[in-house]
C-alpha cells in the first residue's frame, strides 16, 4: 500500500469547503478567524444556501471576509453590521442573512446596533468573534479585555478602577426577549470546532425559520495582539478567557436539534 493508492477521489474525507476560494487569507498564522470562515462555508453548503446567503462583514481584521467566501456580501461601517443586516433581511426575507463581527466592532462602537437588532428579534444571525482585543489596529484594549490583561493601551493590565469591567454582551443578549438562540463556543480543538459548527448551524436555521435573532460568540485568539505563538494563544485562551466567558448555550427557545 503506497500513499498513491490512498490519495484518490473516492477516499477523500476532508478538504477546504468549495465556497472558500483559493485567495490566500490575510489573517496571521493560526488566527481563529480562518477556522470560523471554514465553518460558515461548510454550513452554507450543507444547507444548500450557496446562492441565497448574504453576509455582512465588519470593520476589523475580518473586513476582507468577502474576498474569501463566494457568497453575496455587504461591507458595513464600523459596528453597523446588525443595522445593515436588518435592512437586507426585511427587504429580502428568503435570504440567509448573517453578520460577522469582532468584539471591537460589536461590543464597542456597535453596541447599540447589536443590542437593538437582537432586542427587535430580527431574523438574523450574529457571529461574534471575541478575541478580547482590537486585532486590526494593533492590539488596543477592547470592552471585552480581561481584568489584568495587558494591551498596547493598558500596558500595566486592565484595571477596573481606571478602565471599567469586561463587557459580557452575550449574557446581555440572553436576557433580551428578541433572541431565540444565544451560545458561546470556541474553535481551538476538533471537539470544540464541531460544537461551534452545530451552534452556528442552529443560529442560521433559526433565522430562516423566523424564530428571532441569534448570537453565537466564538471565544477566539489573536496571537499577534496577545504576543504569543498560536499554540500558546490557545492555552492562554483556555486558561484565562474561558473563566470570564464560560462556554455553552446561554439561551435556546428554538426547539431545533
Amino acid at each position: 500500500m503506497t500513499e498513491n493508492d490512498i490519495i484518490s477521489p473516492e477516499n477523500l474525507v476532508y478538504k477546504k469547503p468549495e465556497l472558500m476560494n483559493d485567495t490566500p487569507m490575510h489573517y496571521c498564522p493560526g488566527c481563529s478567524h480562518g477556522v470560523v470562515h471554514k465553518l460558515i462555508a461548510e454550513i452554507i453548503e450543507e444547507m444548500g444556501m450557496e446562492e441565497k446567503t448574504v453576509g455582512v462583514s465588519p470593520v476589523g481584521c475580518a473586513v476582507f471576509a468577502y474576498r474569501y467566501l463566494d457568497i453575496d456580501w455587504q461591507e458595513a461601517a464600523h459596528g453597523r453590521a446588525p443595522a445593515l443586516a436588518t435592512a437586507i433581511k426585511r427587504l429580502w426575507p428568503d435570504r440567509l442573512v448573517f453578520t460577522y463581527q469582532g468584539d471591537g466592532d460589536l461590543a464597542c462602537i456597535g453596541t447599540a446596533e447589536t443590542i437593538h437588532a437582537l432586542n427587535r428579534g430580527e431574523h438574523i444571525a450574529i457571529i461574534f468573534i471575541n478575541n478580547a482585543i482590537y486585532g486590526m489596529t494593533g492590539g488596543q484594549m477592547a470592552p471585552t479585555t480581561l481584568i489584568g490583561q495587558k494591551t498596547s493601551t493598558c500596558p500595566y493590565g486592565r484595571d477596573p478602577e481606571l478602565h471599567g469591567y469586561p463587557l459580557n454582551i452575550t449574557e446581555i443578549a440572553s436576557t433580551l426577549r428578541g433572541t431565540c438562540y444565544v451560545s458561546r463556543q470556541s474553535v481551538d480543538t476538533v471537539g470544540s470546532i464541531l460544537k461551534a459548527k452545530k451552534a452556528i448551524r442552529k443560529a442560521f436555521e433559526a433565522s430562516m425559520k423566523g424564530l428571532g435573532s441569534s448570537l453565537v460568540e466564538i471565544v477566539s485568539t489573536c496571537n499577534s495582539g496577545w504576543k504569543l505563538s498560536p499554540a500558546e494563544a490557545n492555552e492562554w485562551m483556555r486558561e484565562k478567557m474561558f473563566k470570564e466567558y464560560v462556554k455553552g448555550d446561554l439561551k435556546d427557545t428554538t426547539n431545533l436539534k
Binding site: 490512498i6 477523500l12 474525507v13 478538504k15 490566500p24 480562518g34 477556522v35
Partner: peptide, 21 residues
C-alpha cells in the same frame, strides 16, 4: 486519516484521504 489536522487548520490547507484495508 482522522482529519484532525485539517479540521483545526485555519487556512484550509490540508486534504485528507482514508482507506480501509
Amino acid at each position: 486519516g482522522c482529519a484532525s489536522c485539517a479540521i483545526v487548520c485555519p487556512d484550509g490547507c490540508i486534504e485528507v484521504y482514508r482507506k480501509i484495508i
